[in-house]
Design a protein around this nucleic acid. Structure first.
Length: 559
RNA sequence: AGGGGUAUAGCCAAACGGUAAGGCAACGGCCUCUGACGCCGUCAUCUCUUGGUUCGAAUCCAGGUACCCCUGCCA
């Protein structure tokens, strides 16, 4: 297999087509991409799409992908974010090798290139203030007006720009602008700002600079310096592309990268903008950036989603240029698909109701064997205890069973998973009509299979735990953070759509073997879903389990 | 007459003038000691729309329509 053949079985997309052609035509001999986050916040699932695209392309075509911090605005950036972003990229399973870069590594070169433009008469120092610049810029339908400072001499521009660098002027008093075209229909070409004065220390280069380049003046040149062949970004940067190319055309850059755009990810029932995410955290609506309900990568990780599932999700959704809304259920489906294969099974009763087996000896306890995975005997098994008193789930009992309900009711029988068939003979309720306790009998001959002594087949199989040795745990049931597909839609504040039941915490009864689990192991609680211990809050004596995702449940969705 | 983009099934998405891939969902059926998993089958006479070119159009041309992005000293 040669380097310019696609080595994966993943579906085709327009970026792969472009790279394939560039490699075949000899335009490039290898592929170099980059993932360029600004370290001003935590990464979310939308970034995961970009990471998978960039690192995935490099992997598929035998090239490399850089991790580059687009750190040109120290007012918003912090080391904490740099560290977290690195963690998240690694967690997703990607490796940038030697290629950890910072746009700020190139500040001196960028400065020299700015000087170069001034010498060519293609950049000037602007004295107008923010409001004036805005007014002079024109509107979407009207051309802008040239600044009175546009025609300054090269000498004066040089002098002023150097003095900007040396910190002589206060923030906001001057900027360096490119001299392009104030009448351009593309507003990003109306003499864009190249540098602004900012007396702010920088997380990566300290207090070396008093002026900082703008994104547009840094990105393409940094791509060129790093030898990026395909600079892949989201659609909103498309209108910046002519500017991106203008700098490459007018500066003595060492290479000629190309920018390509794809549609950003939108996910239903959540919000993705940094501003909204931050607001949810700050208002205490969620517990932090790693709240398991958030689409942040740290949140998803804490919830218990696996990196493989996220990667698979990114593969499934494809790459295109049309605005798309992906249903969260696809993400959940990817999580289920992976966990179904890897998760050991266990039993846990989330809404415990005591069931007393009247014909079972009070002091007796027997050991039953339960396999850890129905299709994978190599995953072994464990011993579960069977006793006179057991916990079963309140949802598995109905006083008056509805049509199609084949679990327990008075007079009905059901198979206890890996245990015996039991028959319910009585129910004790409180004054409010809530079920307090159930009574019944077991069939001693029914341990194997689902047939009664007289040969009938029991339809229902329910999970249970021995009340004798069950362990109590807090279980957090997570659901969608919002109760509408697009909380951003309409003029209404997105917070109006918050789902009040996005997390409900309940005391549950778990089988004894779970007491010694660790937070790395994801379990399937049979018939309920996938769960794992919360890595932050769960303690040996005080277990806390997160519900990662439910199992598909045709019964309850069709009810 | 601002500029730039995008329209293929419920949600994504492939197709590059040769007769609409695939995934998810949905719907039937089978299997099952998890109403899970798995398996089998069904699911666009049609590609936003109206015309045109062509033996042949989702693909080419012309005109409409809808939606998204752009007026930070953010990225």
């Amino acid at each position: 297999m040669t380097s310019n053949e696609q080595s994966s079985t993943t579906p085709n997309n327009f970026l792969k087509t472009i790279i394939d052609e560039d490699l075949k035509s000899g335009k490039h001999s290898s592929v170099v991409t980059r993932f360029p986050p600004e370290p001003n916040g935590y990464l979310h699932i939308g970034h995961a799409k970009s990471i998978c695209i960039n690192f995935g392309l490099a992997r598929d075509f035998g090239g490399r992908c850089h991790l580059r911090f687009d750190d040109t605005n120290p007012a918003k950036e912090e080391q904490e974010y740099i560290d977290s972003i690195k963690d998240s990229v690694r967690w997703l399973g990607f490796d940038w090798g030697e290629h950890l870069h910072y746009a700020s590594d190139n500040f001196e070169q960028l400065f020299q290139w700015a000087i170069f433009l001034i010498h060519k008469g293609k950049a000037y120092v602007e004295d107008l203030n923010v409001e004036q610049i805005r007014a002079y810029r024109g509107t979407l339908t009207e051309p802008g007006t040239e600044s009175p400072f546009r025609s300054r001499s090269i000498e004066e521009n040089l002098d002023l720009f150097n003095r900007m660098r040396s910190g002589e002027f206060p923030d906001g008093t001057r900027v360096l602008r490119a001299k392009i075209d104030m009448a351009s229909p593309n507003i990003s070409l109306r003499d864009p700002v190249l540098y602004r004065i900012l007396h702010t220390p920088h997380p990566h280069v300290g207090d070396a600079w008093k002026i900082y380049p703008m994104y547009d003046f840094a990105h393409g040149q940094t791509d060129a310096i790093e030898g990026i062949t395909h600079s892949i970004c989201t659609l909103e940067f498309e209108s910046h592309k002519p500017l991106y190319e203008w700098f490459l055309d007018n500066l003595p850059v060492p290479a000629r990268p190309r920018q390509y755009e794809f549609a950003r990810l939108n996910l239903t029932y959540t919000v993705m903008s940094k501003r909204k995410l931050q607001e949810l955290v700050q208002l205490g609506i969620v517990s932090g950036w790693d709240d398991p309900r958030l689409p942040t990568l740290v949140g998803i990780k804490r919830r218990g989603y696996t990196p493989g599932a996220v990667r698979n999700f990114c593969e499934q959704i494809g790459v295109g240029r049309s605005d798309s809304w992906i249903d969260v259920s696809l993400l959940e489906e990817c999580v289920r698909a992976e966990l179904n294969e890897s998760a050991p099974r266990a039993m846990a009763v989330l809404r415990p109701v005591k069931f007393i087996i009247d014909n079972y000896p009070v002091d007796q306890a027997e050991e039953l064997h339960a396999p850890n995975h129905p299709q994978k005997p190599e995953m072994g098994g464990r011993i579960i205890q069977f006793t006179r008193e057991i916990w079963i789930d309140a949802d598995d009992f109905m006083e008056v069973p509805s049509k199609g309900f084949y679990r327990l009711s008075v007079g009905g029988e059901v198979k206890l998973r890996f245990g015996y068939i039991i028959k319910c003979t009585g129910v004790i309720m409180n004054e409010q009509g809530a079920v307090m306790e159930l009574h019944g009998e077991y069939d001693p001959a029914s341990r194997e299979g689902i047939h009664t002594a007289d040969g009938r087949k029991v339809k229902g199989v329910i999970h249970w735990v021995s009340a004798h040795n069950a362990v109590t745990a807090e279980v957090r049931l997570f659901d969608r953070l919002f109760n509408v597909p697009n909380p951003d839609k309409g003029g209404i504040d997105y917070k109006e759509y918050l789902n009040p039941l996005s997390v409900v915490s309940i005391p549950a009864q778990l089988e004894a073997s779970l007491a010694s689990s660790d937070s790395e192991t994801r379990y399937q609680f049979e018939r309920m879903g996938y769960f794992r211990q919360d890595p932050k809050d769960s303690l040996p004596g005080k277990l806390v389990f997160n519900r990662i995702v439910t199992l598909r449940d045709v019964w309850s969705t069709n009810k």
